[in-house]
């Protein structure tokens, strides 16, 4: 249980990470998002890169940093598709900014808070996704409400575990 309950006394601290962690973890998330659906098609249900953006933004509590990180990860995600670059970039940088802003105000080390936060952000990502596709690109993307809610719940649960694992990579100050 200690894995799921990090020390909450440091909740308002700005957590630091080794630069390699900041580079490798997002790349690994993108890699697994692209590779694992080949072996396990249901993995496509997850959105690991967005979870990583949320985690680092919340942990570093830097809106600009979260924005930049979200933009970079989102553009890399876009580059792997055949769609215009920027769809996921816009979504991820908005999420990164919001996550960093929330991290400045509330305790985000609590698993319950993380679950609600991940659920909200993944659902927001889906809404932004549909809005951008419909309004900016003119692509008629279907909106399946229940499907997106279930997806947000699953991603939220996965995010709680993922965040607990990533907590181990923090640098002690």
């Amino acid at each position: 249980m200690s894995l799921l309950y990090p020390n909450s006394r440091r909740e308002m601290e700005e957590h630091r990470f080794h630069p390699l962690v900041l580079i490798l973890v997002p790349l690994l998330a993108i890699f697994f998002q692209a590779y694992l659906p080949l072996r396990f098609p249901s993995v496509g249900f997850l959105n690991v890169p967005v979870l990583v953006v949320i985690y680092f933004s919340v942990s570093r509590r830097s809106p600009i940093g979260g924005t930049l990180l979200g933009m970079i990860i989102g553009i890399i995600q876009d580059a792997l598709t055949h769609l215009p670059l920027g769809v996921n970039g816009i979504i991820d940088c908005i999420l990164g900014y919001l996550a960093a802003s929330i991290g400045l105000r509330i305790d985000v080390d609590n698993p319950g808070t993380r679950l609600i936060m991940n659920f909200t952000f993944i659902l927001l990502a889906s809404i932004l996704h549909v809005l951008i596709l419909r309004r900016l690109l003119g692509i008629h993307e279907q909106w399946y409400g229940l499907h997106e809610v279930v997806r947000a719940v699953v991603n939220g649960l996965i995010g709680v575990v993922l965040f607990a694992l990533l907590d181990r990579l923090r640098q002690r100050q």
């Binding site: 993108i30 080949l38 496509g44 890169p49 792997l80 598709t81 055949h82 996704h129």
Partner: peptide
């Protein structure tokens, strides 16, 4: 590999 998203 795949695109990593269901949209593409």
């Amino acid at each position: 590999g795949t695109s990593g998203t269901d949209l593409s």
